[in-house]
Design a protein around this nucleic acid. Structure first.
Lengths: 267, 267
DNA sequence: CAGTGGTCTAGACCACTGG
DNA sequence: CAGTGGTCTAGACCACTGC
């Protein structure tokens, strides 16, 4: 059933027929068709062919474009849905995942109130304290895969729930992809920061690693969080990645855990 | 194509032909065939028809037993593999997941050394300090879905890496399922506790929820962990569940985070 | 009612493991 | 070499959405 090499009847620029298999060298590193399809779709996603919240072409269309069966496209999309890159909605289509959806926000904010449901406090109040352009220190550069001295944006903000300051976050971003981001733009945007990144800078955060420690409130944190100096705080260091495992954000958060806790599920 | 109601040619006790659909009432609550198959396999798993580490029947066998196509069985097993209930190995078969595998252990112990790879320190030294039978307090009872006053086992142990005490854990277990568990049995077992639970008590932990906070070392913890009183520690409260979302363990851990950190990935 | 994703089947063939 | 899971196809039909 190999794809017959007739003239491509579809409009795809990058492929008239999937590579099928790179035979020839010693270890061919077998890759199933649906994986190749998956990475092709991924490329279109990165290239911005379809933006967050939009639908991607139907399975039948994609099958025609790539000259494979619908079942193969289905398996590729199944995996992308499992990776939270895409959301399937029966009867409507398949949509590019976006941080504008509430459920996605909770996947990236694990601090929940001790009492009540995760979202029961209403939206956080976000106060940007500081935002400046600077040169990357050695450890910031390493985290963001930059060189020491490269330009970065740094911001500090406080998140409050029900009027109570609960989180202080220091955020570092590579300056180049976020060209034009200012303190005003940050302060005026009332909504998730990752949503802003999507709509304004075409940067979609896909995954993040967090390192969590217990530390003592000091160095001004105690004042911002309205706790006594020495109060134990949760320190959460996050590196967030876009599509190609490309780090795009370093974030150091300090969480009060007297009224909230970090929730995690092990499976 | 519906399953013909002939005599069951297979040995399955609980099903000669899958329920197909519970029509009749107002909202039939449609459930696809592969979901029904999945829950049937799940029942066999709970009943201990196949033990952790053993293979389950091949897809072809299961398809014959349930009188469905191999593809339908495959989809059921695919989901169970995604849930880490089962592990597929091409060419060999499908195996019941077990905590005896190293990779599984890291899914349930998220504290990793700041330097070096997750397993680089070698196995933890486990010292059981205490183990006693007692009556459940209100909050322990609630966590384990027992009644206040029901019998529980309580244990405290210290985990050390490279000779340095790093974790103190208080553990509560419902006494009934763990009948016969003694301090000696715990102390003499050199290996993951959840592995012991599987082999000795036929209790397999499948999932766990953790609540993480920052606290100050006090009440004897500072001595056990060899830190100054007031040192910030990570407090990790875990409830672990077996197959039916049945809570089977409450665990309160206190982690040193000066040499280690809790690692988490957000997707 | 047309279009989408979701389920189910049947069959062919491939990749991997073990005896 | 037989048996397992893994891939791919083709086609039928179902459930859901929106016009």
């Amino acid at each position: 059933m190999a794809a017959s090499p007739s003239t491509p009847t579809t409009l795809s620029p990058q492929t008239a027929a999937v590579p099928v298999q790179a035979e020839g060298s010693g270890a061919p590193a077998f890759s199933p068709l649906y994986q190749q399809i998956k990475s092709l779709i991924l490329q279109s996603l990165q290239a911005g062919e379809w933006k967050p919240g939009e639908t991607i072409p139907s399975e039948i269309e994609l099958a025609a474009r790539f000259r494979v069966s619908q079942g193969t496209v289905r398996k590729a999309i199944d995996e992308m849905a499992a990776d939270n890159l895409v959301v399937r909605r029966q009867g409507r289509g398949t949509f590019v995942a976006t941080h504008a959806e509430q459920q996605v926000q909770f996947r990236f904010l694990k601090l929940v109130p001790d009492l009540g449901e995760p979202g029961s406090e209403g939206p956080a109040q976000r106060d940007v304290i500081d935002c400046r352009r600077m040169r990357a220190s050695a450890d910031v550069a390493r985290a963001l895969a930059l060189r020491s001295g490269d330009a970065v944006l740094q911001a500090r903000r406080v998140l409050s729930y029900g009027g109570a300051p609960t989180i202080v976050e220091d955020i570092w971003l590579p300056a180049a992809p976020f060209k034009g981001l200012t303190a005003e733009r940050l302060a005026d945007y009332h909504g998730p920061m990752y949503e802003l990144f999507e709509t304004e800078f075409n940067v979609r955060m896909v995954r993040a690693d967090e390192k969590i420690r217990a530390v003592s409130a000091a160095g001004g944190l105690e004042a911002l969080l309205n706790v006594a100096a020495g109060t134990p705080l949760l320190s959460v260091e996050r590196i967030a990645y876009t599509y190609n495992d490309l780090p795009m954000e370093l974030r150091r958060g300090y969480y009060r855990t007297d009224t909230h806790h970090y929730h995690n599920t092990l499976g």
